[in-house]
Design a protein around this nucleic acid. Structure first.
Length: 425
RNA sequence: GGGCAAGUAGCCAAGUGGCCAACGGCAACAGACUGUAAAUCUGUCCUCUUCGGAGUUCGGUGGUUCGAAUCCAUCCUUGCCCA
């Protein structure tokens, strides 16, 4: 099975330019994907392009991960209905550094490899190019008519917000990136999300018109959830790849909570398991869906890929303590269990106040488990709060020392799945 | 510079003097049911609250009025057309 066949079967190819497959079969090809430094960490939406690069390298080709230090200063209009605010230069530099550090973890940069991965930042070549040079070297080769025909631009022109010249020029910058990499790195392929198709083809067009070269692109479908929700969003916002923002436990839980239909699609995209292995898994899952082997495998593979085996094991351990025996009283958890829970939200609370006795509403607000008393009260009334695994029945419930587990901890649950460990000090 | 239209909560989008913290939809959170699924039903969803309320909102500012998201003036932003 060649790379393209493999990716097709995994559902990772949306559109592909004719001739791409032949090119990849013919020789070791250099290909790149651009990442926008819109934050100082990537989130799981970027995992698909990352995995594409990994597959690409595994198939013997040479991947380049490009961070858009220059394009990030301009803003991509694709998929955006409105003009965005520009990021400040400092933020951008911080973001570029963060994103770069993350990307470096996933690819093999070992210089002794013929297809060692490379890192690039388009700021490096845009920094020294003057506006006039750019107009003469890039702008001259692409007509406005061509640029306006792009979906991302057309939508904005037909819509009621318009598009600034700056964002309009974005595709030309991205096109120029491709051209630059083609010239300097012999890069003949660009991959990316399907919303990038327009920007990517501007690049192949520029390469063709400027130097008669042939370059290729293909895109991956954007990940969606079957229930229509946004992929990668949870109660607390984005699911990030940075462990400081989203703990490995939370990360693991995100995947574990995937719906059956999503898991079936995602296991092919987000794991490197073989086709046979996946088919067996799916079959197994259908025989006994309650076991959730599919979700567990998916969560395992991707958590190990992103955070490593050790963090994965801690996440599973925490998960087992909290979920394996949900009806067991919280008192059955040993002190080691409590202390070893990695990844759930922990906070401290004054022991004196507990000794004195405090009402549940104030307690929840003061530990920041809820952002206000009103909010805490509403959730209690809705039956959404448990203390030490017992549902809090009324808002006048009192917290006192009798609730302390091992004289030290209180286990709070918001809903069924969100655990908080409060330590009395 | 001229003409026309628009700016409402995270998003979309009603409301066009009091019945407006503002219809509805999406997203989100919680409950029931389950498998830490999905679908469905229910509750919450500007802020705070002693759950009785209180406070701050409908691009900004001033005004008219007992009373304004709604009327007037002015400014800002955006789109379309003309120059």
């Amino acid at each position: 099975m060649n790379l393209i066949e493999e990716l097709r079967w995994r559902g990772m190819i949306q559109d592909i330019m004719p001739g791409t497959e032949e090119q990849l079969n013919k020789e070791m090809t250099t290909g790149y994907i651009g990442f926008d430094p819109t934050a100082d960490s990537l989130h799981i939406g970027s995992l698909v392009p990352i995995l594409l690069l990994v597959h690409f390298q595994k198939a013997g080709h040479k991947p380049i991960a490009l961070v858009g230090g220059a394009t990030g200063m301009v803003g991509d209009p694709s998929g955006k209905s409105e003009e965005r605010n520009l990021l400040s230069e400092e933020t951008l530099q911080k973001n570029v550094a963060g994103v770069k550090a993350q990307l470096e973890k996933f690819l093999d940069f070992n210089p002794s490899l013929p297809n060692a991965a490379e890192m690039a930042n388009n700021y490096d070549w845009f920094r020294n190019i003057s506006f006039i040079d750019f107009l003469r070297e890039a702008g001259k080769y692409i007509t406005v008519n061509y640029m306006m025909a792009k979906d991302s631009v057309k939508k904005r022109i037909e819509g009621d917000t318009g598009i600034s010249y700056t964002e309009f020029a974005y595709q030309l910058m991205q096109g120029y990136d491709f051209y630059w990499l083609y010239q300097h790195k012999n890069c003949k392929l660009q991959m990316g999300g399907s919303d990038q198709w327009g920007n990517m083809t501007t690049g192949t067009e520029l390469i063709r018109r400027k130097c008669g070269g042939e370059a290729f692109v293909f895109t991956n479908p954007l990940i969606t959830k079957t229930d229509g929700g946004k992929f990668g969003k949870t109660e607390s916002g984005n699911v990030w790849l940075d462990a400081a923002r989203t703990t490995p436990y939370q990360f693991y839980q995100f995947w574990l909570n995937a719906s059956d239909t999503d898991a079936e699609k995602w296991v092919r995209i987000f794991t490197f398991l073989t086709r046979d292995a996946i088919e067996i898994l799916i079959h197994e899952h259908k025989m006994n869906p309650a076991e959730r082997v599919l979700q567990k495998t998916l969560a395992q593979e991707i958590t190990i890929f992103v955070h490593g085996k050790e963090e994965y094991e801690k996440a599973v351990e925490t998960t087992q303590k909290l979920f394996a025996n949900q009806n067991a009283p919280a008192e059955s958890l040993s002190i080691e269990d409590m202390e070893g829970m990695e990844g759930i939200v922990k906070s401290n609370f004054s022991k004196e106040k507990i000794t004195a006795g405090i009402d549940i509403v104030s307690f929840l607000a003061e530990t920041a488990i809820f952002d206000s008393k009103g909010n805490a009260r509403k959730n209690i009334q809705g039956g959404g709060v448990s203390i030490n695994r017992k549902k809090v029945e009324a808002a006048d419930f009192k917290i006192d020392t009798s609730l302390l587990l091992h004289d030290k901890y209180i286990l709070v649950q918001k809903g069924k799945k969100n655990y908080y460990l409060v330590q009395a000090i």
